[in-house]
Design a protein around this nucleic acid. Structure first.
Lengths: 149, 149
DNA sequence: TATTGTTATACTCTATAACTATA
DNA sequence: TATAGTTATAGAGTATAACAATA
């Protein structure tokens, strides 16, 4: 039993070392696949989360995106200035507000996503069907890793 | 045939949208798992590549890490100041030099890796053996995606 | 008192443009 | 002329600490 645990642990640590640089390099490239509309990946990502998960408070959005609240404040300022989100009064708590994506936000997300995904889509097309299937099944596992941080 | 291609393409684009936010969020967390030796993930990663792939020029290292040459210059300055790499004269080209990891670099990498991997290792331990196996097989696929950028 | 969010500040990461030295 | 690398500069990304408003 002790041996099994030790082996599993060694294997797991080795997997961590294997996985981290690959994730880092790929994310570097993804950040640079920037359409020229001047919206960055960070901003787009927050907008996409609002679309996917619906209206929520600034704090909840920060948690969902795994950033600290002040970082989200900056992102929301940019989104609001462009009319891509709006803030509605929270029904009971006046310190907070409920942030929702606007029609303009939805429209922008659609057009932006097409451009941004172009590179990654092209790269994915170079893989085999099996490899793509593997990636598909791995996305929720990555999310599981990011949870319970 | 046309239908198959179209379907495959739609599926691939959807996979891109699915995968990107997951990668972004996980990498955010990984960057913050910073040991207090003041070496950042970017620096550690370059050092790890030198260990794995052996001595190479600054340009080649930049390419391997998927960053531009000036970004690598900064990283190498830090590494050299700490004696973690050394620069040997290139045999024929005096504009360039061959960068190699030192003994100190190897030692630091070992101790640092243990600390840095702690969080990820812990998270990985929460997964099932099947999920970990899936992640292991996916690392080379991520590298394949980052290639031919 | 505790919590939500913002402001102030600073550091890391990375890029592009311009330059130097060498090929 | 072309290439390898560096310097100069700037913008994006993110955090911690301190603060204001409200609970």
């Amino acid at each position: 039993m002790a041996t099994v645990t030790k082996q599993a642990s060694a294997t797991t640590a080795e997997l961590a070392s294997l996985l981290r640089p690959s994730l880092l390099r790929l994310t570097r490239i993804l950040r640079n696949q920037r359409a020229d509309t001047s919206l960055t990946l960070t901003v787009i990502s927050a907008l996409a989360t609002l679309k996917k998960s619906g209206p929520m408070s600034a704090g909840d959005l920060a948690a969902a995106e795994r950033v600290q609240p002040p970082s989200m404040t900056k992102v929301l300022t940019q989104l609001e200035e462009r009319g891509l989100v709006r803030r509605d009064a929270h029904p009971t708590d006046r310190r907070s507000s409920i942030i929702a994506i606007t029609e303009a936000g939805l429209a922008l997300l659609d057009s932006e996503r097409q451009r941004r995904d172009a590179w990654l889509t092209r790269q994915l097309a170079r893989l085999t069907a099996d490899e793509r299937a593997l990636l598909r099944s791995v996305a929720p596992i990555l999310d599981k890793l990011a949870e319970g941080e």
